[in-house]
Amino acid sequence: MTRATTWFFRAAAAWTGAGLLAGLYYRELTRSTGHPSGTQLAVAHTHLLVLGTVFGLLFLVLERQYDLSRSKLFPGLFWTWIAGTAVTAGSQVFKGSLQVLGSAAADSKAIAGISGLGHITLTVAFVLFFLALRSRLKADVSAPHAELVSEAF
């Protein structure tokens, strides 16, 4: 297993654990307070599992197939994805917890701003991902119909 596949595997496994813990935290906090659903806390579980686990496994498969880590954009892609997922889900857990606890601070513009920064960071990660994948598709001359791929880009 290469260093990059190890990173993607470990990251996907860690995001799975974080997603499951977020789901458990949501269930227990809302149950103990009697708060109905419909808070930001309710979507943190799903965001962690999709942005962390599913994308981590997708990146792992594409790394195995196309050696994404050979792209000069790879380190930026990896760490930007990690940071964007952490900030986005972290702000959801924080704001959602405040909502469940009935705090007026849940409507803070600062929290919304931090969440927005997380989403912007994820956007940058996805742009880096597509650029890295495009560069590796161009470089993959051994693939069937490689000339068609290079002409398309």
Rank of each mutant, 00 (worst) to 15 (best):
M1L: 14
T2S: 15
R3N: 11
A4Q: 10
T6M: 08
F9W: 07
R10Y: 07
A13V: 15
A14E: 03
W15S: 11
T16G: 09
T16E: 08
G19V: 06
L20A: 10
L20F: 15
G23D: 09
Y25G: 09
L29W: 14
R31M: 09
T33M: 13
G34M: 11
H35L: 05
S37Y: 12
S37P: 01
T39A: 08
Q40K: 03
V43N: 07
A44W: 02
A44P: 04
H45P: 12
H45R: 04
H45G: 11
T46L: 07
T46F: 13
L51Q: 07
G56D: 05
L57W: 15
L57F: 13
L60I: 14
L60R: 02
L60S: 01
L62P: 03
R64A: 08
Y66P: 04
R70E: 08
L73T: 02
L73R: 01
P75Q: 03
T80K: 00
T85P: 11
A86T: 10
V87C: 05
V87P: 06
V87T: 07
G90P: 04
G90R: 08
V93L: 15
K95M: 08
G96C: 13
S97Y: 04
L98Y: 03
V100I: 06
V100R: 09
A105M: 10
A105E: 10
A105L: 10
A105Y: 05
A105P: 02
A106I: 01
A106Y: 00
D107M: 01
D107E: 06
D107L: 13
S108G: 01
K109D: 05
K109G: 15
A110R: 06
S115Q: 08
G118F: 07
G118V: 08
G118L: 12
H119R: 15
T121G: 00
F126M: 04
L128H: 03
F129E: 01
F130H: 06
L131G: 01
R136T: 01
L137H: 10
D140I: 10
A143M: 11
A143G: 06
H145I: 05
H145V: 09
E147H: 15
V149D: 04
S150E: 12
E151P: 04
E151V: 05
A152R: 11
A152D: 05
A152V: 09
